[in-house]
């Protein structure tokens, strides 16, 4: 397979999943394997700017990990998931690429054959 799409649908804190998902994406990119991250559902919280987890709960700042995959990898953020949670575009990290349902469909469709879809 030629690339990886890491799907994260859990909130960045309270679960290890978002942190570990970014870890996989970073490892892939460091090994020259194309990798993108898709945030859906509660996963969209991972792309919010100005997270302060290190000071408050002593957990790595997942927002900062977003920048470690950029620009080699894309950080897709599902628009409807954002809107359902009252999150606005200006609240997201600069690396975030907001995608609507049609764009999500196209991304998934274009990555069915040679891409490993890894849901973390």
């Amino acid at each position: 397979m030629k690339s990886a799409l890491i799907i994260i649908d859990k909130a960045p804190y309270g679960y290890e999943d978002a942190f570990s998902g970014f870890y996989v994406a970073i490892a892939c990119l460091n090994r020259d394997l194309d990798a993108d991250v898709l945030l859906v559902g509660d996963g969209v919280y991972a792309a919010m700017e100005r997270q302060e987890s290190e000071e408050s709960i002593k957990f790595p700042n997942v927002g900062e990990l977003c920048y470690l995959i950029f620009p080699e990898g894309s950080l897709f953020v599902h628009e409807n998931s954002m809107l359902e949670r009252g999150i606005k575009e200006k609240e997201l990290v600069e690396a975030a690429e907001i995608i609507n349902d049609e764009e999500l469909y196209e991304i998934i469709r274009s990555k069915t054959v040679e891409t490993a879809v890894i849901k973390i």
Binding site: M1, A4, A27, R31, A116, I118
Partner: peptide, 14 residues
């Protein structure tokens, strides 16, 4: 975790 990209590259299905 670096085994993941290596395995992805050499797999027919993940």
């Amino acid at each position: 975790v670096y085994d993941i990209p290596e395995w992805v590259l050499n797999s027919d299905k993940v």
